[in-house]
Design a binder for these strands. Structure first.
Lengths: 144, 144
DNA sequence: AGCCGATATGTTATTTAGTTACATGACCCT
DNA sequence: AGGGTCATGTAACTAAATAACATATCGGCT
């Protein structure tokens, strides 16, 4: 019965396993990032019981760029931009008020960092760029 | 007997508490980043017993820019550059081979990200920039 | 000196995050 | 049928971070 998701209608890659699809679906329906345990809690009714099941799915999903890990939050988001697999690195703006995350590409930033790397003899294979702060809405409502 | 470090000879700020000084000293003597628990292990002989003691010291140290947290590693480093408190944000290049971390400023990158923020109405208060990869030495020895 | 508020400490227990180890099942290929 | 590979399931565990509560210490004030 495995791989029984043949009949589904999602836009994502079509060769996800059941667990991967469940995890990605959960992320997709959430406005804010979710920790692995958050995800697990929401998938108990679907038969998932152990953290490892979530982590394994997340590993595959992030490898493929369908989900991203927010390092400063120990949490995950669904990739917002279908094209982000093509573009290189991505930056995130994380609102500490409402929890929402915006994903944006900054090619200039990326090339600057690559430039520094070349000069330093550093061979990068992953870059993390995360801004913490307040989104427009939260900044205007809590002036501080 | 508290604050008995008056007679010490460190260059750091001179108003650190005993625990803060112990933690910062531990970080300063380590070539690679240390997790809070790593630090704790190295300070048992000095009487520290609980994680919270370490986390509390780290909080103050990072607030003051004397130490930095590496989000993608859940670990901490001593600030390498005495001037980094003056400059704004800092970027890190983390070698996945030997574990060493290089700290570097990239004003251009910072201003680009600030530029994006303005356009998006996002008010940043912290930025995390971390590269993972191989340093010059490790890249040349493990060609892969 | 004595009091007081703010800050630093110490200790225990608990929550949250992530991994190791091992057994099972499905799929594909020959 | 046999064997390789990959996804799954489960339990036990290590690692990271915080909550709650009690005690001390410092700085200033009168």
């Amino acid at each position: 019965m495995a791989h029984s998701h043949k009949g589904h209608n999602h836009v994502w890659a079509d060769d996800l396993t059941r667990n991967q699809e469940l995890v990605l679906g959960t992320l997709a329906h959430s406005a804010a990032p979710l920790s692995a345990y958050d995800i697990l809690d929401r998938l108990r009714d679907d038969g998932l019981r152990a953290p490892l099941q979530i982590y394994r799915a997340l590993e595959k999903l992030t490898e493929r760029g369908l989900a991203h890990r927010l390092e400063s939050l120990n949490a995950f988001v669904c990739c917002a931009d279908a094209h982000c697999h093509a573009s290189g690195s991505i930056a995130f703006a994380i609102c500490e008020g409402c929890g929402k995350v915006e994903e944006f590409a900054q090619p200039e930033v990326e090339s600057r960092l690559k430039g520094w790397s070349e000069g330093a003899g550093f061979v990068p294979n992953r870059m993390t760029i995360e801004l913490r702060g307040l989104c427009r809405g939260c900044a205007s409502s809590s002036p501080a």
